[in-house]
Simulated scan of single mutants.
Amino acid sequence: MAADPLSRVFAALADPTRRDMVARLAGADATVGELAEPYDVSVQAVSKHLRVLEDAGLVSRSRDAQRRPVHLEAEVLDLMTTWIERYRRQAEERYRRLDDVLASMPDDVSPTHPTDDTTPGGNPS
């Protein structure tokens, strides 16, 4: 059974090399050879990384004469952004409610601490 699209995107981006490739492709399209340059891996290894990114829908390849540029499909990142944003808003609302509770507390209330007027046996000293 194939994973849902969001799971494929997160799984593809779990690898730091693939995240770096996506970041580099955000600036401009690049060939496999250009993407392989900064890494100490073979072009074949980079191709495998790109295949994972392609399967997740994050990149596509096209043909431009002899050149085969890899293109970032940035709209797929919107899927992640939407998911993350929903939970960010929920967390923000919880913090807002906590701020309201803290703001409604009197400032002159000091925290209560247990007193140390008993011995370890529980008897007053």
Rank of each mutant, 00 (worst) to 15 (best):
M1G: 11
M1R: 14
A2M: 14
A2I: 12
A3M: 15
D4I: 08
L6I: 10
L6D: 07
S7P: 07
S7L: 05
V9K: 01
V9H: 04
V9Q: 04
F10W: 11
F10M: 11
F10A: 01
A12E: 03
L13P: 04
L13N: 01
L13Y: 05
L13W: 04
A14H: 11
P16V: 02
T17H: 13
T17G: 13
R18K: 06
R18N: 02
R19S: 06
R19A: 01
R19V: 03
D20R: 14
M21D: 09
M21W: 00
M21A: 09
M21E: 08
M21R: 12
M21I: 15
M21T: 10
V22H: 05
V22E: 04
A23E: 14
A23V: 14
A23I: 09
R24I: 08
L25T: 05
G27C: 09
D29E: 14
D29I: 08
A30F: 06
A30V: 03
V32T: 12
V32H: 10
G33E: 14
A36E: 00
P38W: 05
P38I: 00
Y39C: 04
Y39W: 05
V41F: 09
V43M: 10
Q44P: 01
Q44E: 14
A45T: 13
A45K: 13
A45N: 02
K48T: 14
L50Y: 00
L50A: 07
R51S: 12
R51F: 04
V52W: 02
V52F: 00
L53S: 01
E54P: 06
G57Y: 03
L58M: 03
L58G: 03
V59L: 00
S62T: 15
S62A: 14
D64L: 08
D64S: 15
A65T: 13
Q66V: 13
Q66F: 00
R67G: 03
R68M: 06
P69N: 06
P69G: 08
V70T: 06
E73H: 14
A74N: 04
V76R: 15
L77H: 01
L77R: 02
D78P: 07
D78R: 12
D78S: 10
L79I: 09
L79V: 08
M80T: 12
M80D: 09
T82G: 06
W83G: 07
W83H: 14
I84R: 15
I84L: 13
E85V: 01
E85L: 09
R86M: 08
Y87W: 11
R88D: 07
R88W: 01
R89Y: 05
Q90G: 05
Q90I: 01
Q90L: 10
Q90V: 02
A91Y: 09
A91P: 02
E92I: 07
E93V: 07
E93F: 11
R94P: 06
R94Y: 11
R94E: 07
R96G: 05
R97A: 06
R97Y: 00
R97W: 08
L98V: 12
D99C: 10
D99S: 15
D100S: 12
D100L: 00
L102H: 08
M105C: 13
P106H: 04
P106W: 07
D107F: 11
D108K: 07
P111C: 10
P111N: 12
P114D: 13
P114T: 06
T119P: 00
T119V: 08
G121I: 02
G122N: 04
N123C: 10
N123E: 15
P124K: 13
P124G: 08
S125N: 09
S125K: 15
S125F: 15
